[in-house]
Write a protein that binds this DNA or RNA. Structure first.
Lengths: 129, 129
DNA sequence: CTGAATCCAAGAAGATACTG
DNA sequence: CAGTATCTTCTTGGATTCAG
């Protein structure tokens, strides 16, 4: 069992894990949680564009898989915090790397994107003739 | 310009880049291309579960953003290869890291998932009382 | 062989309103 | 404040067909 794990294999269970991780929201949430426990509302504010539904849903997934822990303070009004587990902290380092890569490289990409958009169709170029 | 780039901001252009990168198919394809130029059919075989449409579509996106280059050999039958650019190679290192993280950690995650599934509802647990 | 184009189903994601 | 439920919208992805 667990021998030749390979996310490229459709039936390898590791593919399921990749499916969860390869998500915009997961990456951004993990990055936000690196600073320490964060409240739900604060997460909503930090992760721009996420809906409350997606936030809750993603946090449930992360909780189920052991990336985050939910801390419910028995107060009124209710206060809930989320914090990384050891596993989550490990993955968050990768998330941070991705975020930083994007920050460091997006200007080049955007420029390439503009150039390609302005250029003529691909069919007339890049042939080995 | 390009000062406080932050993918957390919905309107920051870097978010667009994150949107593309945070994709299962992108990660797997970049990993496959690390070995060198690969033909389309070979990619289809290696990346389990990808449809021809998604493969082509993803390759177009990667090409547009400067991650891969399309090499069309003027032969019959036609032969097309894709290879990483320098930018793509840079990102593929990260993709590889993610893949390896998944391979190394998925057994723990799967076990946690099973335990959580078997456990009672969350509402009755993990309160600070 | 490659891949573009179409149609269609399934699921993700957004908006809103409501409960504790 | 935190979370759920519902409804709607729309992107994703699969199957098929056709062209170079």
């Amino acid at each position: 069992m667990f021998l030749p794990a390979n996310p490229c294999n459709l039936n390898c269970p590791s593919r399921d894990v990749l499916d969860l991780i390869a998500s915009k929201w997961v990456i951004l949430i993990l990055c936000c949680l690196q600073q320490g426990p964060v409240r739900t509302g604060e997460l909503m504010r930090q992760v721009g564009g996420i809906s409350q539904k997606m936030l809750t849903q993603t946090l449930r997934d992360l909780e189920r898989d052991g990336f985050v822990e939910r801390i419910s303070h028995p107060e009124v009004p209710p206060r809930v915090e989320y914090q990384l587990t050891d596993l989550g902290r490990s993955l968050s380092e990768l998330a941070r790397s991705v975020e930083q890569w994007v920050v460091g490289n997006y200007p080049v990409i955007l420029e390439k994107r503009r150039k390609t958009a302005a250029a003529p169709g691909r069919s007339s170029a890049r042939h080995l003739d």
